[in-house]
Design a protein around this nucleic acid. Structure first.
Length: 825
RNA sequence: GCCGAAGUGGCGGAACUGGAAGACGCGCUGGACUCAAAAUCCAGUGGGGCAUGUGCCCCGUGCGGGUUCGACUCCCGCCUUCGGCACCA
């Protein structure tokens, strides 16, 4: 037997050298390129896995926060590949849109040049990290080969009436000089730049996502595993509420006004009525009346107020002079106009029930409107004082509500709606908070909307065979409130595809989120130039088995991608209804107490660290730092700990590589170290494969390496070293590959994942914990397989236990087999 | 206001199904090597007390209760922090 040579000078660990070597090997071996179905080497569908991380914006370089994100997919991809799966793990660039365009503006240059420079830089960084990516499928959303199909999909939506154009009050960012989707407005401010959003009325393009509100909610059931908080956020955003639509008849006008309410049980308490200032009926109601000037003045003022202003001021409004009839009581009630009623939700009109709605109460107080209590707590000794606001409680009954008085609130609700229904004055209804997706942008750097405006024919789609509509070159692409594309006169003026007369191209571009709403399918068939993708190939790879990305996309991207998938399913383009079976949202990386971001100036770029300490150290540290779903703080000192570990691993394993090769499995020495190695296999496999805990496997391998260092002459030491190298490969892919080679093997990236030997996991003895009255008093090494009585007997004999029993009678003994004995006295 | 997540040493964190709280790493202390330093290696490291017979006792997972032989883990009530939604009828 030849042990490690003592005293020999050990070769130094030089990451830069070995990392480049293996990156070359992988590239030449096409190690991470995966065949499609029908191609040689493609497995059955059951043996495939699609691992996908959200694609980066090429608005700058990659920082450590990105590295952490992509390491999740990296470990999962390696782990699944070595467990026998064909793994698709592609990469691309979300190249269009405000992030890239603003970067171009601040760096000075054409958005295309800046974007493509950034893409090249990020790709270089990713390759330097040694990630297992199939670069054959790389895509960038600004390339005509890609956006041709974004436009093609848009036209399919248009055909179905799912894309439409209308004049609507929209959110306008005065800084970015463009409209925003509702989802891009946070606390009344622009999601990107923080400028206070203004209201404007403009003709814009929308996707009819509201038609899918129910499906987006219900089909969450189809998802295998999404974080509960993401589902909750989407549920809140869709905001389903069950209620009723009730018709109110306007006095002296042949018109019905519908309202949506969730509290039909309070209908008898509706003492006034309110219309949103934007409600189309308002001008009609006051036309020619003495109140016309006052009301229309209020409407104009309301339009000028920002959303924030509207919300923060005290509720105000104006009486129209008109009344309408409460269908329950038959009494006429006054119609007011007030901007606390929003045109975008429900029907833009409400019944005012001051006794049971805080907002209505505040309004009624201010204008002296009557307050009538119609719901009261059941069994209350005294009903609440008339004319006061009563908070909603659990058990309530209707009062002052005619024939419905005495009914519990839920029944009352139902009975009133049914009664209205029978008279044709109401119906059960469901309301959603979700609004249609405003997709047009008045910016240069985006996908052109492929339609033509013709005076005679209206909106005419560009024929499929003329796609893509190429983004024109313009001199002036800075935002100026109208799309910069409009300045490209030659491009704008085209013959109408329908009648041939002179017409004008649409000059708005699409929201970036359109581009990223289908890219995950394009990867399956990225080089297809006849269709966005082949359905059979898409259905083979998708849905994505494991999607990974930041929580900041919990609503926007993830909701839009689900919507797109549902529409594509209806169009027969794909055979699945949900794009992402499992979702994992990783935490953010902080530095100096703040989220790492370019705008805060606290980014750490991997380059320097990788140059000095190697990609493997960065790869490992970002997962070792803490649970991947939680935020983490970058600390240089912690990073050094990993660097130290890699040097130790190198030294310890090289020492073993000089010893006898590991014997075949059946003659493996059964030492404590061999056992430790098998326990480590079991733990790492379970942590990565089942628990998705990516920090603890590193600690487990560290323990194993420490143990090998303590017993370098153990007969199982070489086997333990091989095990450590094999298990750390998904993390430190380069050094693992190098050490694997020096241990006399090859191609660790495709070596089968190690299997724990169940026999070696079984121990002959275990440490029995002995408690007295629940407090640990002693431990003893005892053989496995003793009966409960024997365990108790042995426990009682221990001297320290006897001291604590102190001659007292043991009333009860709890035995947990294989673990502990608790004696109760 | 409504919904959700989280509070563990000096620090990042571990403890998965109720069964030894603090794995692993950082930091710190002491030692070895060295002329010296760095690097590396070895030992120790939650707090307090009694011992220095090498061990023993008490306290300890945000706070207060409860269930249990036994609670970081389950239940009830609070506090704090973070995130989402919010004039949504």
């Amino acid at each position: 037997m030849s042990g490690p040579e003592s005293g020999a000078e050990v070769e130094r660990y030089e990451p830069a050298k070995i990392e480049r070597k293996w990156q070359d090997v992988w590239r030449r071996a096409r190690a991470f390129n995966v065949p499609d179905p029908g191609e040689p080497g493609a497995p059955e569908r059951g043996a495939k896995t699609y691992v996908l991380e959200m694609l980066p914006y090429p608005s700058g370089e990659l920082h450590m926060g990105h590295v952490r994100n992509y390491m999740l997919g990296e470990v999962v991809a390696h782990f699944r590949r070595r467990n026998g799966y064909a793994v698709l793990r592609p990469m691309g660039f979300d190249a269009f849109g405000l992030p890239a365009e603003n970067a171009a503006i601040s760096e000075g240059g054409h958005p295309r040049e800046v974007t493509e420079r950034n893409i090249a830089a990020i790709r270089r960084q990713m390759e330097r990290m040694g990630w297992a990516i199939d670069w054959d499928r790389v895509l960038a959303t600004h390339e005509p080969e890609y956006y041709r199909w974004t436009q093609w999909l848009f036209l399919r939506f248009l055909e179905r009436g799912l894309a439409y154009r209308k004049e609507a009050p929209v959110k306008w960012c005065p800084n970015d000089q463009t409209v925003l989707a509702n989802e891009q407005v946070i606390d009344g401010r622009c999601e990107r730049c923080g400028a206070e959003v203004e209201a404007k009325s403009l003709e814009q393009w929308f996707f009819r996502i509201t038609a899918y509100a129910a499906a987006l909610l219900e089909e969450m059931e189809l998802l295998e595993s999404w974080p509960e908080r993401v589902l909750t956020m989407q549920r809140n955003w869709i905001g389903r509420s069950q209620g009723a639509e009730i018709l109110f008849r306007v006095d002296g006008l042949d018109a019905d006004v519908p309202v949506f309410t969730t509290r039909a049980d309070t209908l008898f308490g509706a003492t006034f009525f309110v219309l949103a200032p934007e409600h189309p009926l308002v001008p009609q109601l006051v036309e020619g009346s003495e109140r016309e000037a006052e009301v229309m003045d209020y409407v104009r003022h309301a339009a000028a107020r920002s959303a924030v202003e509207r919300e923060e001021k005290e509720k105000d409004g104006v009486f129209t002079g008109r009344r309408l009839v409460n269908p329950a009581t038959g009494e006429p009630i006054p119609i007011w106009v007030a901007d606390y009623v929003l045109m975008e939700y429900g029907t833009g009109a409400i019944m005012g029930v001051p006794a049971h709605d805080e907002r209505d109460f505040a309004f009624a107080e201010r204008y002296g409107l009557p307050v009538r209590t119609v719901v009261a707590p059941a069994g209350a000794d005294a009903p609440p004082a008339e004319g006061a606001f009563a908070a909603h409680t659990d058990r309530e009954v209707l009062v002052n509500s005619g024939r419905f008085s005495g009914l519990p609130a839920p029944e009352g609700k139902r009975a009133i709606v049914e009664w209205l229904q029978s008279k044709g004055r109401g119906a059960f209804a469901v309301g959603y908070r979700l609004r249609d997706w405003l997709l047009s942008r008045q910016r240069y750097w985006g996908c052109p909307i492929p339609v033509v405006h013709c005076e005679r024919c209206g909106i005419v789609p560009v024929p499929d065979d003329e796609l893509p509509v190429l983004l024109p070159e313009v001199d002036e692409y800075l935002p100026k409130g109208r799309s910069p594309l409009a300045t490209a006169e030659d491009w704008v003026r085209v013959p109408c595809p329908s009648c041939g007369e002179e017409a004008r191209r649409e000059t708005d571009t699409m929201d970036t989120f359109v581009d990223s709403s289908w890219y995950f399918i394009r990867y399956a068939d990225a080089r297809n130039d006849r269709a966005p993708f082949d359905r059979a190939v898409a259905d083979y790879w998708l849905p994505v088995n494991q999607y990974i990305g930041g929580i900041e996309h919990a609503i926007l991207h993830l909701l839009y991608a689900r919507f797109f998938t549902k529409v594509m399913h209806e169009l027969g383009l794909v055979g699945f209804r949900e794009p992402f079976a499992r979702l994992f949202t990783q935490g953010m990386l902080h530095y100096q107490g703040a989220k790492m971001s370019k705008s805060k100036g606290n980014v750490i770029v991997p380059d320097e660290y990788v140059e000095r300490y190697g990609a493997d150290a960065a790869r490992m540290y970002l997962l070792f730092i803490g649970p991947v779903e939680q935020d983490a703080e970058w600390q240089d000192a912690g990073f050094e700990g990993i660097v130290r570990f890699l040097h130790r691993l190198w030294r310890v394993v090289l020492e073993q590589s000089a010893s006898e090769p590991t014997p075949r499995r059946d003659s493996q020495p059964r030492t404590a170290l061999a056992q430790k190695a098998h326990e480590t296999i079991a733990k790492v496999t379970d942590d990565i494969g089942r628990r998705f805990a990516l920090n603890t496997p590193i600690a487990a391998v560290m323990e194993l390496v420490n143990e090998i260092g303590r017993r370098p002459h153990d007969p199982a030491a070489r086997f333990a070293a091989e095990t450590a190298v094999s298990l750390i490969q998904p993390y430190a892919a380069h050094v693992a590959e190098e050490l694997w080679e020096r241990l006399g093997h090859s191609r660790l990236w495709e070596a089968p994942w190690p299997q724990a030997d169940p026999e070696l996991l079984e121990r002959e003895t275990f440490e029995l914990v002995v408690q007295v009255n629940g407090r640990v008093r002693a431990r003893a090494e005892v053989p496995v397989g003793l009966s409960d009585d024997e365990l108790v007997a042995r426990a009682k004999e221990l001297p320290r236990v006897r001291a604590h029993l102190d001659g007292k009678e043991v009333r009860k003994a709890v035995v947990v087999p294989g673990k502990l004995v608790n004696l109760v006295v």
